[in-house]
Write a protein that binds this DNA or RNA. Structure first.
Lengths: 156, 156
DNA sequence: CATATAGAGGACCAATCTAGTACCAATTGG
DNA sequence: CCAATTGGTACTAGATTGGTCCTCTATATG
């Protein structure tokens, strides 16, 4: 299962890229080129980030985007939530009102714990952390991963 | 954003229900009635759980399912992985080989940390934990499904 | 042995969601 | 004014998902 949508993933890539040059302003096209992502899609992602106030936008000629805060003060949770919406494991975590089971579902109360754990995991990592470099070289090359033994692996 | 698919959510509900009566064997229809989930879908979920060895199936007349292990020894991570597949935040976490960005993507190495945190959050909760406690008293009788002209929508 | 029951394993479909694009309005610098 | 750039929305093709159904195999029982 994939947890993040592609767009949210792009969001993180874009935001991380911006964190690398926080004080410089860049327009959508430049960011798309730098990250090698489709330009129109990057523009869409940036709009979402701007909407949530994670980046500030300047319109008009010579306009562009820059991070609204220090890279260390923006967490993955915020970036992801800006694009994919608030984080919840189950439907009822996000739209409790819409669940007909709410009244008798015995599992519901327990999701909150896991929910919080996931949220904290995403909140604990800032753009600065994502940007930090060293692991780049150390990370294994992209060769196909060997078949893994059972049960759940959280690949990577 | 919703992290679990509906099917995975159902899986947890079904597994939790089975944990409540671990030694009793029940067939798919009975479990569907007790959990008020669509029967054919519950059957599908149970097959997936059986495939991963989380429940054991007995075929034939008087057949059915039961948990393969103690409820305390089955984690949410396993149930979810049985249905939604292995857990990964991003595409590249699950299918690293398929990502053209792999070679230069600077964010990739950092997902592993978050990935593991999410996995651990799901691994830390057992079916016993989900079942534990209060909310259960309110749960309607398990075996005799109350007359239901129309199945309720739990699309949430 | 015959029959009814129940899971195994797919095939299939409709509905929804997603990624990506396109378009036009608003804003700003030159 | 003109060009560049974001804001916002609408749209489409394709993928994904939830849900159903059908056929095959295994088992209990009379």
């Amino acid at each position: 299962m994939i947890i993040l949508s592609k767009l949210a993933d792009y969001g993180v890539i874009v935001a991380t890229h911006m964190a690398a040059e926080r004080d410089r302003q860049a327009n959508a096209a430049a960011i798309a080129a730098a990250t090698r992502l489709p330009q129109a899609t990057v523009a869409k992602v940036l709009k979402a980030l701007a909407h949530k106030g994670l980046v500030t936008a300047t319109r008009g000629a010579t306009g562009g985007y820059r991070l609204a805060r220090a890279a260390g003060a923006i967490s993955l949770a915020e970036v992801v939530a800006a694009i994919d919406g608030d984080i919840g494991l189950t439907q009822c975590s996000v739209h409790a009102a819409g669940c007909a089971r709410t009244n008798y579902c015995p599992t519901r109360p327990h999701w909150a714990v896991v929910n919080r754990a996931v949220g904290e995991a995403l909140s604990a990592v800032s753009l600065d952390d994502m940007r930090a470099s060293q692991a780049f070289a150390a990370y294994p090359p992209a060769t196909a991963a060997p078949p893994q033994p059972e049960p759940p692996r959280y690949s990577a």
